[in-house]
Nucleic acid binder design. Structure first.
Lengths: 251, 251
DNA sequence: TCTCCATTTATCACATTGTGATAGCAATTG
DNA sequence: CAATTGCTATCACAATGTGATAAATGGAGA
C-alpha cells in the first residue's frame, strides 16, 4: 500500500530540512541526513527554486521565497486546523453523545481551537479560549508529550491554582500525573477544572509522530462504567487517527 | 534555455491556484485555467497531499497543511526579502556611489526594508521605517503600478502634506506624476521629501510581472547631468533584474 | 430512498523525467 | 597561491509522470 515516493516528496523533504535549519544547506551532512546522494540534492534544490519555493541567498544558504510566503499570508495554522478538525469533532460528539474539543498548547496554556456541542449540553469552554493545562484532560496529554526539559520548565513555572477540590496542585504530584498520562496514552480530568466537568483526551499525531494537538470528550457527569470509558477511548483514538491521516504524510 | 518544466513546477502551479482561490478546487475550471487535463490535476493533488503541502477538508476543498504552515512560521516575507536584497544594494551603492534602498508599499506608505549607506553619507531614512509614498521615488514607482481602482482610492485618501517647497500635493497633479512615472518606468524624487534628498527608483518585478518592491539611489545632491542619471537608471534596472531572477520562476 | 452531477480513483501503453556516479568548474578561505 | 567546499554538467538506465478512458464514490435535492 505504500505508494512509491514521487520526486515531489523527496524535494519537499529537503525543503523541510532547509527551513528547519534556518536555510543552511551543507551538502554532505544533508546527504546522509536525508539518505539522498549529493548530486540529487542539488537537482532537488534547483527544482525547489524553479518552482518558486526557495531562493538562494548567500552561497550555501537557501531561504523560502518571499513571494511564496506572501501567498500563504492569509492562512494561519490555527484557522486551518480548526476547519479541518471540525467535521471529525461533529461526528465524534454524535457518536459519543458528549461535547468534544480540539486543543493545542500555547504558552503553557491549552487553546481550544474547535468545539462541537452535543445537543445543547452546556459546557463553559469557548472556541479560541484558553484553559490551564495541568488540570485539563487535553492539557495533560499535551504536557505529557513535551520533552523532558520543556516539562521541567513547565513544572517549575507554578504556582498551580486549585480550581476545584480535586485539582492536583503539588508540582511533584502533577509530574506523576503526567507520567501516568503518558504511559496510559490518554488524559483524564476528573472534575479538576470545574465541579461539573469530566473529560478524557487523546493526542493527535502528525504522520511523523509530532503531537499536533489533542481531542477530548467532555461531559457534565462522570462516565458510568470503566467499559464505557474504554469504549470512548477507542472511538477517540479512531478519530485521532483519522485526523492524522487527513494531515497527510509529509508532516 | 527554457529548462523543461518538471512535474514539480506544474504541481506547485496548482498549489498556487488553490491558495489563491481559498482552497476551492473545481476540476474542469482549473483544468482550462492551468492548461492541464483533469486526470493529471488529481494526480498533482495527491502529490501535494502526500508531500504534506495540502489537506483535504470537504469534498472539493483543499487547504494548506497546517503542519507545513507551522514550519514556515519563523519566516516573514519582510525579513527574507531584506536579507535577499541586501547584497544587491551593497553592490549598487558601491557602483553608483550613492546610498541605496529597497522598499515596498504597505498601507499606502513606503516601508524601507533595506538600506545600504555609501561611505558614511547621511541619509535620514531608517530600515523598517516608513515614508509617504506620493512624494518619494520608490513610492511613486509602487503607486504607479497599482490597479486603477487602488490608485483612485489612494488619490482620494489625501490630504498630502507639503514636506518641502517642491512637494506635489494637488491630487490631480499627483495623478499626472504617477502616470508619467509609469510611462517612464522609473520614479524621481527631486527634493520633494527633504530639501537635501534626491532619488530615482525602479520597480522590482517577480518573474510573473508582479511588483515585489522597488530599489532606489539616493543622494544629498542633485545628479549632475542627464547622462549621469541615465547611467544610474541602467545600473538600477540591471540590479532590479538580478533580484527578480534570484526570486526565481514560480512567483 | 432514488437520481443526478461533480468529484475522485483506477488503469493502461507510452513518453518524459528523475537518478546517481563521475568529472569538472567556480568561488570562498587561509 | 593552494585547498576546501559549493555547485554544474553529462551520461546510460531506471522509474515516474502523462493523458485518454472508464468506473466508482459521495453529496444535494426530489
Amino acid at each position: 500500500m505504500t505508494r512509491s515516493m514521487s520526486s515531489f516528496d523527496k524535494a519537499m523533504a529537503l525543503f523541510g530540512a532547509l527551513v528547519a535549519q534556518d536555510g543552511v544547506f551543507e551538502s554532505d551532512a544533508m546527504s546522509v541526513q536525508l539518505g539522498v546522494p549529493e548530486s540529487t540534492l542539488y537537482r532537488h534544490l534547483n527544482a525547489l527554486h524553479s518552482a518558486g519555493l526557495i531562493c538562494r541567498s548567500r552561497r550555501g544558504r537557501y531561504l523560502p521565497n518571499p513571494v511564496f510566503l506572501k501567498k500563504l499570508e492569509g492562512y494561519t495554522p490555527h484557522a486551518v486546523l480548526s476547519e479541518l478538525v471540525r467535521p471529525f469533532l461533529d461526528q465524534l460528539s454524535v457518536a459519543l453523545e458528549t461535547t468534544t474539543h480540539f486543543g493545542l498548547l500555547e504558552n503553557d496554556m491549552v487553546t481550544y481551537l474547535a468545539k462541537s456541542v452535543f445537543e445543547g449540553e452546556e459546557v463553559f469552554t469557548r472556541e479560541n479560549g484558553q484553559l490551564e493545562a495541568y488540570c485539563s484532560a487535553i492539557g495533560k496529554v499535551l504536557l505529557s508529550h513535551m520533552t523532558v526539559d520543556e516539562r521541567r520548565a513547565y513544572i517549575s513555572s507554578g504556582p498551580f491554582p486549585k480550581l476545584t477540590d480535586k485539582t492536583i496542585t503539588d508540582p511533584a504530584a502533577i509530574e506523576r500525573e503526567l507520567h501516568r498520562t503518558r504511559n496510559k496514552g490518554f488524559g483524564v480530568d476528573d472534575g479538576e477544572v470545574h465541579n461539573a466537568l469530566y473529560c478524557i483526551a487523546v493526542p493527535v499525531f502528525s504522520s511523523r509522530g509530532i503531537v499536533v494537538g489533542a481531542i477530548s470528550s467532555s461531559s457534565s457527569q462522570r462516565w458510568a462504567s470503566p467499559k464505557e470509558q474504554r469504549d470512548r477511548l477507542i472511538q477517540l483514538n479512531g478519530v485521532a487517527q483519522s485526523i492524522s491521516s487527513t494531515l497527510g504524510a509529509g508532516a
